[in-house]
């Protein structure tokens, strides 16, 4: 469905995007994760035919962005991270203008616009001027605008940025609906746990390079070589502390604050971890719980991008 081949964008000596290669199947929801200036928006601008790449190409449904940008525009719906709206235009007129811009006949637009407003929960605002809508409403209206020509691919650059928690949840629900409609979605966000919830695949980009790509589980697995373990004890025991200190794959051991127990970083294999726990129990250590911390996407992102400089 989407094939990004050797995409590079340079501004003089600065490389904003460095040989990006990516293949996404139809119906995939792909989350682009990266710090500000990492290259997410640059990628989206090139895919949306708004920015000329230095080299490389993007193929969507067999159509090259370089060769046939006009055909690509029919296939995509693009929502920029920052966008403006026209003053003195009502919500339904806003959608009507973009519907006409995609060559949709007036009769079809009349049927389509109420459906789209309903999808984004803005039916009650159809006669409101768009510049008077709240930011969350504008974002939803812009999303409806992206859908007016029924594109196969949605490119959403930070769709939830600047929204309050309620608006974020509303946006997330709409995106889930779109996922259910089988759209291929490219989405970037700083709210990483939100991406984890709705994305099939994640790509981590840093300094213009794609440094990790795969399912959320696959990326988390990359960090499995190092995990944080917390052991709670019924009573503070010097014997227990010295037991864990002596273990071969344990480092950075610390006493728990305000509680009996220790926490440490473990770098061993799973089999050795099982043996360590077995030995602790056989040694009659007063263990209440033995807990491995689940690394969330924020941890994964921080860990992956840590050494990328």
């Amino acid at each position: 469905m989407i094939e990004i081949k050797g995409l590079t964008k340079k501004y003089g000596q600065f490389t904003a995007l460095d040989d990006l290669n990516l293949t996404l199947d139809e119906g995939t929801v792909f989350g682009f994760v990266g710090a500000n200036g990492a290259g997410k928006s640059t990628t989206f601008l090139i895919v949306s035919t708004l920015l000329q790449p230095t080299s490389g190409d993007v193929i969507i449904n067999g159509v090259s962005v370089r060769e046939k940008p006009a055909d690509i525009r029919k296939l995509i719906g693009y929502m920029p991270d920052f966008f403006g709206v026209y003053d003195q235009l009502k919500a339904d007129e806003y959608l009507d203008f973009y519907g006409a811009s995609y060559g949709i006949p007036e009769e079809d637009r009349k049927k389509l616009i109420p459906q789209l407003l309903e999808l984004v929960n803005l039916s009650h605002k159809r006669d409101s001027y768009v510049d008077l809508l709240s930011r969350g409403m504008k974002q939803r209206l812009c999303l409806a605008r992206c859908l007016i020509h029924d594109p196969k691919v949605l490119i959403l650059d930070e769709p939830a940025s600047g929204l309050d928690p309620r608006a974020r949840i509303e946006m997330r629900d709409i995106l889930k609906t779109l996922k259910g409609m089988g759209k291929t979605i490219l989405i970037s966000s700083h709210i990483l746990p939100e991406l984890a919830e709705m994305c099939d695949e994640i790509g981590v980009i840093d300094n213009g390079k794609l440094i990790a790509h795969g399912s959320v589980a696959e990326i988390q697995k990359k960090l499995q070589g190092e995990k944080m373990i917390t052991v709670r004890l019924a009573a503070q025991s010097a014997e227990a502390i010295s037991f864990f200190e002596e273990q071969p794959f344990v480092t950075s051991i610390e006493k728990l604050e305000g509680d009996e127990g220790v926490s440490f970083i473990y770098r061993g294999e799973e089999a050795e971890q099982i043996d360590m726990l077995k030995q602790a129990i056989l040694n009659d250590l007063p263990i209440l719980s033995f807990m491995e911390h689940v690394t969330n996407l924020e941890d994964v992102f921080m860990e992956i991008t840590k050494g990328a400089d």
Partner: peptide
Amino acid sequence: EKQTLPILLTTSQS
């Protein structure tokens, strides 16, 4: 300046 141009340029209009 109003940031409406990128959206306009991604439509099918020539």
